[in-house]
Protein backbone atom coordinates (compact mmCIF):
# COMPACT_ATOMS: atom_id res chain seq x y z
CA UNK A 1 0.00 0.00 0.00
CA UNK A 2 2.69 2.46 1.00
CA UNK A 3 4.44 1.91 -2.30
CA UNK A 4 1.33 2.68 -4.34
CA UNK A 5 0.93 5.79 -2.29
CA UNK A 6 4.56 6.72 -3.02
CA UNK A 7 4.14 6.20 -6.77
CA UNK A 8 0.96 8.27 -6.68
CA UNK A 9 2.82 11.19 -5.12
CA UNK A 10 5.59 10.93 -7.71
CA UNK A 11 3.15 10.98 -10.61
CA UNK A 12 1.24 13.89 -9.06
CA UNK A 13 4.44 15.91 -8.70
CA UNK A 14 5.54 15.09 -12.24
CA UNK A 15 2.22 16.04 -13.79
CA UNK A 16 1.95 19.35 -11.93
CA UNK A 17 5.62 20.36 -12.04
CA UNK A 18 5.34 23.25 -14.56
CA UNK A 19 2.72 24.90 -12.35
CA UNK A 20 4.81 25.21 -9.21
CA UNK A 21 8.34 25.08 -10.62
CA UNK A 22 8.44 28.87 -11.00
CA UNK A 23 7.14 29.44 -7.49
CA UNK A 24 10.01 27.41 -6.01
CA UNK A 25 12.62 29.21 -8.08
CA UNK A 26 12.88 26.81 -10.99
CA UNK A 27 11.82 27.02 -14.62
CA UNK A 28 10.02 24.72 -17.01
CA UNK A 29 13.13 23.64 -18.88
CA UNK A 30 14.62 22.48 -15.59
CA UNK A 31 11.56 20.28 -15.07
CA UNK A 32 12.03 18.76 -18.52
CA UNK A 33 15.70 18.14 -17.77
CA UNK A 34 14.84 16.27 -14.58
CA UNK A 35 12.36 14.05 -16.37
CA UNK A 36 14.69 13.31 -19.28
CA UNK A 37 17.78 12.56 -17.19
CA UNK A 38 15.56 10.61 -14.82
CA UNK A 39 14.54 8.45 -17.77
CA UNK A 40 18.18 7.92 -18.72
CA UNK A 41 19.07 6.89 -15.17
CA UNK A 42 16.07 4.55 -14.96
CA UNK A 43 17.06 3.03 -18.30
CA UNK A 44 20.58 2.40 -17.03
CA UNK A 45 19.13 0.96 -13.86
CA UNK A 46 17.04 -1.54 -15.77
CA UNK A 47 20.41 -3.13 -16.48
CA UNK A 48 22.31 -2.18 -13.32
CA UNK A 49 19.68 -2.57 -10.63
CA UNK A 50 17.45 -5.24 -12.07
CA UNK A 51 19.87 -7.40 -14.03
CA UNK A 52 22.99 -6.76 -11.97
CA UNK A 53 25.14 -5.66 -14.91
CA UNK A 54 27.12 -2.39 -14.75
CA UNK A 55 27.44 -0.46 -17.99
CA UNK A 56 29.79 2.46 -17.87
CA UNK A 57 29.13 3.43 -21.46
CA UNK A 58 25.48 4.34 -21.66
CA UNK A 59 26.32 7.86 -22.79
CA UNK A 60 27.09 6.30 -26.18
CA UNK A 61 23.45 5.32 -26.73
CA UNK A 62 22.18 8.46 -25.06
CA UNK A 63 24.41 10.52 -27.36
CA UNK A 64 23.46 8.55 -30.47
CA UNK A 65 19.83 9.34 -29.69
CA UNK A 66 20.77 13.00 -29.33
CA UNK A 67 22.84 13.21 -32.52
CA UNK A 68 20.23 11.11 -34.33
CA UNK A 69 17.48 13.59 -33.66
CA UNK A 70 19.70 16.64 -34.26
CA UNK A 71 21.17 15.42 -37.53
CA UNK A 72 17.83 14.22 -38.84
CA UNK A 73 16.22 17.59 -38.25
CA UNK A 74 19.22 19.48 -39.55
CA UNK A 75 20.05 17.41 -42.63
CA UNK A 76 17.11 15.16 -43.52
CA UNK A 77 13.64 16.39 -42.61
CA UNK A 78 12.48 19.03 -40.19
CA UNK A 79 10.37 16.60 -38.19
CA UNK A 80 10.71 16.00 -34.47
CA UNK A 81 8.98 12.62 -34.67
CA UNK A 82 11.21 11.35 -37.49
CA UNK A 83 14.24 12.60 -35.58
CA UNK A 84 13.28 10.79 -32.40
CA UNK A 85 12.55 7.57 -34.27
CA UNK A 86 15.88 7.68 -36.12
CA UNK A 87 17.81 8.64 -32.99
CA UNK A 88 16.30 5.81 -30.98
CA UNK A 89 16.83 3.35 -33.84
CA UNK A 90 20.50 4.34 -34.08
CA UNK A 91 21.11 4.04 -30.35
CA UNK A 92 19.28 0.74 -30.05
CA UNK A 93 21.01 -0.78 -33.06
CA UNK A 94 24.41 0.22 -31.70
CA UNK A 95 23.40 -1.27 -28.36
CA UNK A 96 22.32 -4.51 -30.00
CA UNK A 97 25.61 -4.89 -31.87
CA UNK A 98 27.92 -3.85 -29.06
CA UNK A 99 25.85 -5.85 -26.57
CA UNK A 100 26.27 -9.00 -28.64
CA UNK A 101 30.04 -8.49 -28.68
CA UNK A 102 30.47 -8.00 -24.94
CA UNK A 103 27.73 -10.06 -23.35
CA UNK A 104 30.13 -12.84 -22.34
CA UNK A 105 32.21 -10.46 -20.22
CA UNK A 106 31.49 -9.94 -16.56
CA UNK A 107 31.84 -7.33 -13.86
CA UNK A 108 34.71 -4.91 -14.21
CA UNK A 109 35.67 -6.25 -17.65
CA UNK A 110 32.18 -5.61 -18.93
CA UNK A 111 32.21 -2.08 -17.52
CA UNK A 112 35.66 -1.34 -19.00
CA UNK A 113 34.70 -2.49 -22.46
CA UNK A 114 31.47 -0.48 -22.37
CA UNK A 115 33.58 2.62 -21.64
CA UNK A 116 35.88 1.82 -24.54
CA UNK A 117 33.04 1.40 -27.03
CA UNK A 118 31.40 4.54 -25.70
CA UNK A 119 34.53 6.57 -26.30
CA UNK A 120 34.61 5.51 -29.95
CA UNK A 121 31.38 7.41 -30.56
CA UNK A 122 32.64 10.39 -28.62
CA UNK A 123 35.75 10.64 -30.79
CA UNK A 124 33.72 10.35 -33.97
CA UNK A 125 31.43 13.18 -32.86
CA UNK A 126 34.42 15.21 -31.68
CA UNK A 127 36.50 14.81 -34.86
CA UNK A 128 34.01 14.75 -37.67
CA UNK A 129 33.65 18.52 -37.71
CA UNK A 130 31.87 18.96 -41.00
CA UNK A 131 28.96 16.72 -40.03
CA UNK A 132 28.72 16.73 -36.26
CA UNK A 133 29.97 20.20 -35.56
CA UNK A 134 32.94 18.71 -33.72
CA UNK A 135 33.85 20.23 -30.39
CA UNK A 136 31.27 23.00 -30.78
CA UNK A 137 28.42 20.53 -30.99
CA UNK A 138 25.61 20.35 -33.49
CA UNK A 139 23.88 23.71 -33.78
CA UNK A 140 21.61 25.37 -36.28
CA UNK A 141 18.61 23.16 -35.70
CA UNK A 142 15.75 23.06 -33.22
CA UNK A 143 12.73 21.05 -32.23
CA UNK A 144 9.80 21.33 -34.60
CA UNK A 145 6.09 21.58 -33.86
CA UNK A 146 4.42 18.18 -34.02
CA UNK A 147 1.49 17.76 -36.38
CA UNK A 148 -0.98 15.35 -34.81
CA UNK A 149 -3.48 15.61 -37.66
CA UNK A 150 -6.32 17.18 -35.72
CA UNK A 151 -4.06 19.72 -34.05
CA UNK A 152 -0.50 20.90 -33.89
CA UNK A 153 1.51 20.49 -30.72
CA UNK A 154 3.65 23.60 -30.44
CA UNK A 155 6.59 22.14 -28.59
CA UNK A 156 8.78 24.76 -30.24
CA UNK A 157 7.27 27.89 -28.80
CA UNK A 158 5.35 26.60 -25.81
CA UNK A 159 7.47 25.39 -22.90
CA UNK A 160 4.61 23.68 -21.14
CA UNK A 161 3.51 21.85 -24.29
CA UNK A 162 7.06 20.60 -24.66
CA UNK A 163 7.21 19.49 -21.04
CA UNK A 164 4.04 17.42 -21.41
CA UNK A 165 5.31 15.93 -24.65
CA UNK A 166 8.43 14.79 -22.79
CA UNK A 167 6.38 13.59 -19.83
CA UNK A 168 4.09 11.56 -22.10
CA UNK A 169 7.06 9.67 -23.55
CA UNK A 170 8.53 9.28 -20.06
CA UNK A 171 5.24 7.83 -18.79
CA UNK A 172 5.00 5.29 -21.58
CA UNK A 173 8.65 4.29 -21.12
CA UNK A 174 8.32 3.87 -17.38
CA UNK A 175 5.12 1.86 -17.78
CA UNK A 176 6.80 -0.46 -20.28
CA UNK A 177 9.86 -0.96 -18.05
CA UNK A 178 7.63 -1.66 -15.05
CA UNK A 179 5.60 -4.15 -17.05
CA UNK A 180 8.74 -5.91 -18.25
CA UNK A 181 10.09 -6.17 -14.72
CA UNK A 182 6.89 -7.53 -13.21
CA UNK A 183 6.51 -10.53 -15.50
CA UNK A 184 8.35 -13.83 -15.86
CA UNK A 185 10.99 -12.30 -18.16
CA UNK A 186 11.72 -9.59 -15.60
CA UNK A 187 12.08 -12.23 -12.92
CA UNK A 188 14.71 -14.05 -14.98
CA UNK A 189 16.71 -10.80 -14.95
CA UNK A 190 16.33 -10.56 -11.20
CA UNK A 191 17.46 -14.18 -11.00
CA UNK A 192 20.61 -13.34 -12.97
CA UNK A 193 21.30 -10.41 -10.66
CA UNK A 194 20.77 -12.51 -7.55
CA UNK A 195 22.81 -15.54 -8.58
CA UNK A 196 24.00 -16.02 -12.10
CA UNK A 197 25.14 -19.57 -11.51
CA UNK A 198 21.79 -20.66 -10.13
CA UNK A 199 20.00 -18.88 -12.97
CA UNK A 200 22.13 -20.68 -15.53
CA UNK A 201 21.41 -24.07 -14.02
CA UNK A 202 17.70 -23.38 -13.93
CA UNK A 203 17.97 -23.40 -17.72
CA UNK A 204 18.08 -19.66 -18.43
CA UNK A 205 20.42 -18.83 -21.33
CA UNK A 206 22.19 -16.09 -19.41
CA UNK A 207 23.89 -14.36 -22.31
CA UNK A 208 20.67 -14.04 -24.29
CA UNK A 209 18.79 -12.57 -21.34
CA UNK A 210 21.55 -10.12 -20.47
CA UNK A 211 21.69 -9.07 -24.10
CA UNK A 212 17.94 -8.47 -24.18
CA UNK A 213 18.16 -6.44 -21.01
CA UNK A 214 21.06 -4.45 -22.46
CA UNK A 215 19.16 -3.68 -25.65
CA UNK A 216 16.02 -2.65 -23.75
CA UNK A 217 18.16 -0.42 -21.56
CA UNK A 218 19.87 1.13 -24.61
CA UNK A 219 16.50 1.72 -26.26
CA UNK A 220 15.30 3.88 -23.37
CA UNK A 221 18.70 5.52 -22.93
CA UNK A 222 18.67 6.62 -26.57
CA UNK A 223 15.12 7.90 -26.22
CA UNK A 224 16.29 9.94 -23.24
CA UNK A 225 19.22 11.22 -25.32
CA UNK A 226 16.93 12.24 -28.17
CA UNK A 227 14.70 14.13 -25.74
CA UNK A 228 17.72 15.73 -24.08
CA UNK A 229 18.83 17.11 -27.45
CA UNK A 230 15.34 18.52 -27.93
CA UNK A 231 15.43 20.14 -24.48
CA UNK A 232 18.63 21.93 -25.42
CA UNK A 233 18.03 22.40 -29.17
CA UNK A 234 21.66 21.39 -29.33
CA UNK A 235 23.92 18.36 -29.05
CA UNK A 236 27.31 18.36 -27.45
CA UNK A 237 29.96 15.68 -27.99
CA UNK A 238 30.18 15.53 -24.20
CA UNK A 239 26.74 13.88 -24.20
CA UNK A 240 28.62 10.85 -25.54
CA UNK A 241 31.62 10.96 -23.26
CA UNK A 242 32.47 8.56 -20.45
CA UNK A 243 31.86 11.15 -17.73
CA UNK A 244 28.27 11.45 -18.93
CA UNK A 245 28.00 7.66 -18.49
CA UNK A 246 29.39 8.11 -15.01
CA UNK A 247 26.71 10.69 -14.29
CA UNK A 248 24.00 8.13 -15.03
CA UNK A 249 25.66 5.63 -12.73
CA UNK A 250 25.92 8.28 -9.99
CA UNK A 251 22.23 9.14 -10.38
CA UNK A 252 21.18 5.50 -10.15
CA UNK A 253 23.42 4.65 -7.22
CA UNK A 254 22.66 7.86 -5.34
CA UNK A 255 18.92 7.42 -5.77
CA UNK A 256 18.96 3.72 -4.99
CA UNK A 257 19.60 1.16 -7.66
CA UNK A 258 17.48 -1.53 -6.03
CA UNK A 259 14.36 0.60 -6.21
CA UNK A 260 12.33 1.36 -9.27
CA UNK A 261 12.03 5.11 -8.66
CA UNK A 262 15.41 5.61 -7.03
CA UNK A 263 17.25 6.72 -10.18
CA UNK A 264 14.64 9.41 -10.84
CA UNK A 265 15.29 10.75 -7.33
CA UNK A 266 19.02 10.59 -7.97
CA UNK A 267 18.59 12.48 -11.23
CA UNK A 268 16.46 15.11 -9.51
CA UNK A 269 19.03 15.71 -6.80
CA UNK A 270 21.81 15.80 -9.39
CA UNK A 271 20.06 18.23 -11.74
CA UNK A 272 19.02 20.57 -8.92
CA UNK A 273 22.50 20.58 -7.40
CA UNK A 274 24.04 21.22 -10.79
CA UNK A 275 21.61 24.00 -11.59
CA UNK A 276 22.08 25.72 -8.25
CA UNK A 277 25.80 25.18 -7.77
CA UNK A 278 27.01 25.83 -11.30
CA UNK A 279 25.80 29.44 -11.05
CA UNK A 280 27.94 29.86 -7.92
CA UNK A 281 31.08 27.89 -8.59
CA UNK A 282 33.11 26.33 -11.36
CA UNK A 283 33.77 23.36 -9.13
CA UNK A 284 30.16 22.30 -8.77
CA UNK A 285 31.11 18.75 -9.71
CA UNK A 286 33.21 18.43 -6.54
CA UNK A 287 30.15 19.26 -4.46
CA UNK A 288 28.05 16.75 -6.35
CA UNK A 289 30.81 14.23 -5.74
CA UNK A 290 30.78 15.07 -2.04
CA UNK A 291 27.01 14.54 -1.84
CA UNK A 292 27.44 11.26 -3.70
CA UNK A 293 30.08 10.03 -1.28
CA UNK A 294 27.94 11.04 1.71
CA UNK A 295 24.91 9.24 0.32
CA UNK A 296 26.91 6.11 -0.41
CA UNK A 297 28.46 6.20 3.08
CA UNK A 298 25.31 6.86 5.08
CA UNK A 299 22.62 5.42 2.80
CA UNK A 300 24.31 2.50 1.06
CA UNK A 301 21.04 1.58 -0.62
CA UNK A 302 20.53 5.07 -1.99
CA UNK A 303 17.98 7.71 -1.11
CA UNK A 304 14.90 5.64 -1.93
CA UNK A 305 16.38 2.23 -1.21
CA UNK A 306 17.03 3.16 2.40
CA UNK A 307 13.42 4.06 3.00
CA UNK A 308 12.38 0.50 2.29
CA UNK A 309 14.06 -2.86 2.43
CA UNK A 310 12.41 -5.05 -0.17
CA UNK A 311 13.87 -5.09 -3.63
CA UNK A 312 11.25 -6.10 -6.13
CA UNK A 313 10.11 -3.57 -8.71
CA UNK A 314 6.93 -1.80 -7.68
CA UNK A 315 5.98 1.04 -9.98
Amino acid sequence: MRKHWGSGVIWLLLFTMPFWMLAVGGYTELAARIVVLGLAAMALNFLLGFTGVLSFGHAAYFGLGAYGVGMTIKYLFPSTAAGVVIGVAAGTLAGAIIGALIVKLRGVYFAMVTIAFGQVFYFIAFRWNSVTGGDDGLTGWGRQPINLGFTTLDIQGNDKAFYYFVLALFTISVAVMALLLRGPFGRTLLAIRENERRARFLGIPIELHIWLSFVISCFFASLAGALFALVNNFTDPRFLRWDQSGTFVIMAVMGGMRSFWGPLMGATVYVLLQDYLSSHTENWMSFVGLVFVLVVLFFPRGIVGTARTRTVAEP
Binding site: L179, L180, R182, G183, P184, F185, R187, T188, L190, A191, L202, G203, I204, H209
Partner: peptide, 17 residues
Protein backbone atom coordinates in the same frame (compact mmCIF):
# COMPACT_ATOMS: atom_id res chain seq x y z
CA UNK B 1 10.66 -21.60 -6.57
CA UNK B 2 8.42 -19.47 -8.71
CA UNK B 3 11.28 -18.45 -10.98
CA UNK B 4 12.28 -22.09 -11.36
CA UNK B 5 8.72 -23.17 -12.17
CA UNK B 6 8.23 -20.34 -14.66
CA UNK B 7 11.42 -21.20 -16.51
CA UNK B 8 10.55 -24.89 -16.46
CA UNK B 9 7.14 -24.18 -17.95
CA UNK B 10 8.80 -22.29 -20.82
CA UNK B 11 7.73 -18.84 -19.70
CA UNK B 12 11.18 -17.33 -19.37
CA UNK B 13 10.52 -14.87 -22.22
CA UNK B 14 6.87 -14.20 -21.36
CA UNK B 15 6.04 -10.63 -20.45
CA UNK B 16 3.03 -11.66 -18.40
CA UNK B 17 1.00 -14.75 -17.54
Amino acid sequence: LRIAVEVASKHRLSLWL
